[in-house]
């Protein structure tokens, strides 16, 4: 059994929180630059240039790309041959998030109760999803998720008879109703199948994919491409001021389904598509 110290995990999570919030991924930067070439709207081009300039300032000064430094959504792939020394895995992660948000001067955006709304002051609890996998590695991904784009997300229980057209209609309608709110250009993460809650998790997990990557299943690769083109015909554009570049990517994750159901979830991400991973 391999042992990993609690402190090692805590410090790694803290660093992931800071890096994810200050360093935008190369794939996003590349997509914003590509957007400059396709955007027809002068205002839209101006916005894309400002986002690229903002990314440079954040990187250089290690300050957050966006003031909304998000919910810390943490994905864990824990090898069955790993044990945490000195405490519990979840304590290590929660301590790491609190440390990262404090040390990195990141905003604390979590309130302890949805109705009474008192800030916890630490940005915890983190949302943690764990998979037990073969081996003795521990992979941790931190995905800070902003509230503005989360608010534009939705789950719908479709029927098998709705088919791919029903999914497209739901996704396009969701993006259309979101307009400027989620800070376009967006990334649309789509979960199809599973149960009510599984499908929402699929949508969230899909947002971790690299922009520009192609879905391994040609059927879904084509659906992603088609949805991306149709979203970019809506005219919403950067920041909703009108333009061609409304979405940078559409990602689909599908899962087996009950014979009676076809749930679909759309999780919208703003252009600041942030996530960092480490394998310990």
């Amino acid at each position: 059994m391999r042992e990993i110290q609690l402190d090692t995990i805590r410090d790694a999570v803290a660093k992931l929180c800071i890096d994810a919030n200050c360093l935008l991924g190369d794939d996003v930067v590349r997509a914003l630059k590509n957007g400059l070439a396709t955007e027809e709207s002068p205002a839209g081009k101006d916005i894309l240039n400002q986002l690229l300039e903002n990314e440079q300032i954040a990187r250089k000064e290690m300050m957050p790309i966006c003031q909304d430094t998000g919910w810390a959504v943490v994905w864990v792939e824990m090898g069955s041959g790993v044990r945490v020394q000195g405490g519990e895995l979840y304590d290590a992660i929660q301590q790491g998030v609190a440390k990262g948000y404090k040390d990195g001067f990141l905003r604390k955006s979590i309130v302890e109760d949805p109705l009474r709304r008192k800030n916890t002051g630490t940005n915890t609890p983190a949302i943690i999803y764990t998979d037990i996998v073969p081996g003795d590695g521990l992979k941790i991904t931190v995905q800070p998720k902003g509230g503005g784009s989360e608010n534009m997300s939705e789950v719908k229980m479709l029927s098998a008879s709705d088919g791919a057209d029903g999914i497209a209609k739901f996704v396009l309608d969701r993006v259309w109703r979101s307009q400027a709110n989620p800070c376009p250009p967006i990334i649309a993460g789509i979960g199809i199948g599973g149960t009510f809650e599984k499908c929402a998790m699929l949508a969230k997990h899909s947002l971790l994919r690299e922009i520009g990557s192609v879905h391994p299943d040609p059927f879904y690769a084509e659906m992603e491409q088609s949805l991306l083109e149709r979203i970019n015909r809506l005219g919403i554009g950067p920041q909703g001021l009108g333009g061609r570049v409304t979405a940078l990517a559409v990602f689909i994750e599908a899962f087996p389904c009950h014979i009676a159901t076809m749930p679909c979830a759309v999780n919208i991400n703003c252009h600041a598509a942030r996530h960092q991973s480490v394998t310990l």
Binding site: A58, M63, P64, D68, F105, R107, N181
Partner: peptide, 18 residues
């Protein structure tokens, strides 16, 4: 709702909310 200022900064990151 800005992010906290680092030492020497006037304010942290400070973009608009919805």
């Amino acid at each position: 709702g800005p992010s906290p200022a680092k030492p020497g900064q006037v304010i942290g990151s400070a973009g608009p909310t919805t």
